[in-house]
Simulated scan of single mutants.
Amino acid sequence: MSVAPATGLRAGRYGEVLLLRQHADAFIADVYNSYGLNDCPQAQWSALDATRIAAENQALIAVLNGPRYWLMDSIAQQNAGDVPREIRTFGGIAMFKAATVEIADPQPQLGGYAPHAVNRRTVFTFDAGSEVYELVDPDGTHWVMQSWSQQVDLTLVETDLAGLGTRLRPPPGWHYLVTSLSSALDVDTRNVDAAVLQDELLNSYSRRTG
């Protein structure tokens, strides 16, 4: 079952901590997200020590992913009301366990236009009238930006996103597309793993579904 969606997310600020662990022959990252608990205060975020976080949480490594800002308008999560959320605190920043991610490399590199699977069981909704930013790969698959990042460019703001097509350098055959939605767009991954990739500025994109 799904509970009522969280709304008003667009431009909401958050940070994530990924805790990497080994599972059989694969590597899995538990993703903890601060959204809804706090706004990922910059002073506390800047003070986080990934090595210390990994040691304190018995993880192989910890990856700091943020600060970031949502671009979808709402999120509904499958089974969100069934069990209490798992909450941990990292350097004074409270975060809830939002998803698990399959990682091929035990030293994951963010960015690079390489997709990975995310078990999040959600519907991301972009409302009619919203402007969306997409990468289109050589096969014609659309990847819609779900969040933008200030990790590489601390000055990047939402109004810059429409012009990123002149700045990004994706692999050959890819292009950047800006669209104003005439109807709502759902990225529905309640029953399948999401596919997510990042550009060189560490903005994150989900493969469109349906």
Rank of each mutant, 00 (worst) to 15 (best):
Q107N: 11
I28D: 05
N33F: 00
A114D: 01
L60I: 15
I93F: 01
D49Y: 01
V83G: 01
Y69G: 12
R21A: 13
D30Q: 04
Q44Y: 11
I28W: 13
D105L: 10
P84T: 01
Q78Y: 11
L60K: 14
L19F: 09
R120D: 12
E56G: 11
A47G: 14
W45I: 00
A47I: 10
R52H: 10
N79P: 00
S34H: 10
E86P: 00
A26Y: 04
Q77W: 03
L18Y: 15
G66D: 05
E16V: 11
L71F: 01
V17E: 09
P84C: 01
M95E: 07
A29I: 06
R120G: 04
V83P: 04
P84W: 00
N38I: 00
F96C: 08
G92V: 04
R13F: 03
P115F: 09
I93M: 04
V83F: 04
H116I: 02
A117T: 13
D82G: 01
Y32E: 06
V63G: 06
D30R: 05
P41Y: 00
D105T: 11
Q78P: 04
D30L: 03
G36E: 03
F27C: 08
Q42D: 15
D25P: 02
F96E: 02
D30F: 02
Q58K: 15
A24I: 12
L110S: 05
S46V: 08
R88V: 06
